[in-house]
C-alpha cells in the first residue's frame, strides 16, 4: 500500500518536474522571439535620444536635439505633408473602388469574373516593383508627367487587393437575407446599400482603410518609380539614408513608432467593439 502510494507520488513528481522544465523552455523560446522582434525597435527609439552623432554603445547622454532638428527641417516637413496627402487620397480612392469590387465578387455573377478576381488580388503577392514599373511604362508611353497624383493612382492600385480581401471576407459572413428583406420591404438598392449593407460591414471597411493608409504612408517600391519632383516621407528618409546614418532618422522612426502604436490601439478597440456587437 505504502509502496504503491510512493510510486504514484514519484510519478506525479516526475510529471510535474518535466512539466516545469517544458514550461521554462517555452518561456525562454517565446521570450527570445519577442526580444528578436522588439529589441531593434527599442534600439531605434533609444538612439533617437542619444547626444552623440554616432550610433554606438554605450549612449553618451540624453538629448532632444534630433527632434528639434526635425522640427526645423523644411524638406522633411514638406515630405510629411506630401505623404499625408498621398495616403489620404489613395485610401479614399481604393475604398471607393475596392468596396464595389468586393460586392461584385461576392454578390454578382458576370462573365470574366474569375479573371477579374485574379487580377484584383494579384498585387497582394506581386512584388510592388512590378506594379511600379508597369505603371511607369504606361505613363511614359502616354506622355503623362510623373507627380504625386501618379503616385496616388499607383498606391490605390497596389492596395486594392487589401481592401477587397478584407471587405469580401466580411460580406461572406453577412447573410443575404438582410438585403433581400430590405429590398422586399420596398427600399431601393442604394438605400439598401447605405442603410443595411454598409453598417454591417463598417468595421471591415474602417479596418481596411486604416491598413491602406499605413501601407500607403510607408510605401517605397511603387513610389520610387512613379514620383516626380516631390518626395514622400519614406522617399525622403531613403534619400537621407543613402548619405549615411544619422540620429535624425531615428527620431523620425521614433515618431512613426508612436503614431503606429496609436493606430494599432485604435484598430484593436474597433475590432473589440465589433466582436461585442456580434
Amino acid at each position: 500500500m505504502n509502496t504503491a502510494k510512493q510510486t504514484v507520488d514519484d510519478a506525479l513528481n516526475r510529471t510535474s518536474s518535466t512539466k516545469l522544465l517544458s514550461n521554462i523552455t517555452w518561456r525562454v523560446v517565446i521570450g527570445a522571439i519577442l526580444a528578436f522582434l522588439y529589441l531593434p525597435i527599442v534600439v531605434l527609439v533609444l538612439f533617437s535620444f542619444n547626444s552623440s552623432r554616432s550610433l554606438s554603445w554605450p549612449m553618451t547622454g540624453v538629448t532632444l536635439d534630433w527632434y528639434r532638428k526635425l522640427a526645423a527641417n523644411e524638406q522633411l516637413l514638406e515630405a510629411l505633408w506630401n505623404s499625408l496627402y498621398v495616403a489620404t487620397c489613395a485610401t479614399t480612392l481604393t475604398l471607393l473602388i475596392g468596396v464595389p469590387a468586393a460586392m461584385a465578387l461576392d454578390r454578382l455573377s458576370f462573365p470574366g469574373k474569375g479573371i477579374f478576381r485574379k487580377l484584383v488580388l494579384l498585387p497582394i503577392a506581386l512584388p510592388g516593383i512590378i506594379t511600379g514599373i508597369s505603371m511607369l511604362s504606361m505613363f511614359k508611353l502616354f506622355g503623362l508627367p510623373l507627380s504625386l497624383e501618379t503616385v496616388i493612382i499607383g498606391h490605390a492600385t497596389a492596395l486594392l487587393a487589401v481592401v477587397v480581401t478584407q471587405v469580401f471576407a466580411r460580406l461572406q459572413r453577412l447573410p443575404k437575407s438582410y438585403e433581400e428583406a430590405s429590398l422586399d420591404l420596398g427600399a431601393g438598392p442604394l438605400h439598401t446599400f447605405l442603410f443595411v449593407t454598409l453598417p454591417n460591414i463598417r468595421s471591415a471597411v474602417i479596418g481596411a482603410g486604416l491598413l491602406s493608409f499605413t501601407l500607403s504612408f510607408d510605401e517605397i517600391p511603387v513610389t520610387f518609380f512613379l514620383t516626380g519632383r516631390d518626395n514622400t516621407l519614406p522617399m525622403y528618409i531613403w534619400s537621407t539614408m543613402r548619405r549615411g546614418i544619422t540620429p535624425e532618422i531615428n527620431a523620425v522612426g521614433a515618431l512613426i513608432v508612436l503614431a503606429s502604436a496609436i493606430l494599432i490601439v485604435t484598430s484593436v478597440l474597433l475590432l473589440r467593439e465589433n466582436s461585442n456587437s456580434r
Binding site: 522582434l37 499605413t214 504612408f217 519614406p234 531615428n250 522612426g253 503606429s260 494599432i264
Partner: peptide
C-alpha cells in the same frame, strides 16, 4: 503590430 511600423525603418535599424 510591427507590420504597422515603417518597413524601411525596421530594415534601417538593423543597419545601425
Amino acid at each position: 503590430a510591427p507590420l504597422w511600423v515603417s518597413y524601411l525603418l525596421r530594415a534601417y535599424t538593423w543597419k545601425t
